[in-house]
Nucleic acid binder design. Structure first.
Lengths: 221, 221
DNA sequence: CGCATTCCTGACCAAGCAGTCATAGTGCCA
DNA sequence: TGGCACTATGACTGCTTGGTCAGGAATGCG
């Protein structure tokens, strides 16, 4: 038909991404067991058999969604080194993770559900990567401590705290929304981000870089 | 038969608690949808019909488990007032929550799963209680700030951070275990607790009370 | 046009599920 | 002894589910 000449992607690819989007939403909300292929198909506006045509099994589809999820873990912190400024580096890392919680809450939820279920679908490859990443980051933080750049804080628990307090805004959004009476908007996330940065950086004996400081008009009376 | 004369609880009560324990474990690991009544029955060593005899529906059983879960939220912080010492109060609160994550990880997971699923089973009563609690705690923290006892930190985000970074050790135990290579022991929890306290209290501009300080032999080289 | 590949789908099936029911054992009190 | 309440359970039912299959439509390409 006319009008679609610019889309050189095949109909198959288009359908696949469409299905993946619907699946992402469904899995994030209801978990693997709680999501039926029929529900995903309905959300994607396709017959169930068509979904099974592109992804042979529900497992395959879930694995594909999970793969996207793991891209969440990429960050500029991956490339940090011990000569970097800890305050700047950590603030940016927290900022990145908060932005992830805001813009991709469903992927965060899927990861959380996977962990809660005992992570049966996280393959050894990811585990190794993850462990390797962890060891590298821990070494850098320990170097910063040795150099006297920051307080002595166990790097493992520091990282867990950063993950927890940022992912929380995606995973526990339901709870937060109920307590606030409305969903967190972009400005709320900005405020939450500065608060988390303030807490953790000060907690490490670091000074919050000017760029990440609370802006004037956000001050309490 | 002989031997049971000291147990004045009826066989029914004994079975009920037995079933509840099995259900707690199963729901925490596989969620509501992912748990079959049969599985719970097997874990409890009873025929499925017997489980349904005590709890008419799977929903009922889940609700009963969830009710236990909500007891997690009780804390000595509930009774705090603005004349209390913020450092001492918050340190104790964090300590309590960490202890909950250590001793009742499954209940924490069930709560997390419930929230992730959109909290369809949290009744309005709990929501109201929870909101009321929140408002009370926020007021106290704001008073502390006004009194100059601690830095200006948005109380809401402070509380979220405390919840997140403590519950994390229950909900994400699988991830932590894989990264460490082994489960966290009691001593590890103690260290994690002091680290979280240090981070958050320093983050608020508070001094960690001596009792909650890292002990000497835990120091890094 | 002709053929192959990709795409699409209704009908169907076996398994697992929550929940019902009829039946039966058990302890207790009158 | 009879009756009642509680406890227990195998057999069964109706429904949802993931997945198969056979056949048909669209598309691209020589």
């Amino acid at each position: 038909m006319a009008g679609n000449r610019s889309t050189d992607i095949s109909v198959g690819e288009k359908n696949k991404t469409n299905i993946l989007q619907a699946a992402e939403k469904a899995f994030a909300q209801h978990g693997f067991k709680g999501t039926s292929v029929q529900r995903i198909a309905d959300a994607a506006g396709l017959p169930k058999t068509n979904v099974l045509y592109y992804f042979k099994t529900k497992q395959d589809l879930y694995q594909a969604v999970l793969k996207q999820t793991l891209s969440l873990w990429n960050s500029r912190f991956d490339l940090a080194c011990e000569t970097d400024d800890p305050a700047e580096t950590l603030a940016e890392y927290i900022s990145e993770k908060m932005e992830m919680s805001r813009t991709h809450p469903m992927l965060s939820k899927i990861f959380a559900l996977e962990i809660l279920n005992g992570a049966p679908n996280l393959n050894p490859y990811f585990n190794d990567e993850h462990l390797h990443w962890m060891q590298g980051r821990v070494a850098i933080i320990e170097a910063w401590i040795t150099q006297g750049k920051m307080n002595q804080v166990d790097p493992h628990y520091l990282l867990y705290t950063i993950w927890a307090s940022t992912q929380h805004y995606a995973d526990f959004a339901t709870q937060i929304t109920r307590l606030r009476g409305q969903k967190m908007k972009k400005a709320d996330f900005a405020q939450a981000t500065t608060t988390v940065i303030q807490l953790i950086l000060n907690g490490c004996g670091l000074t919050v870089p000017p760029h990440y400081e609370r802006s004037q008009h956000d001050q309490l009376s």
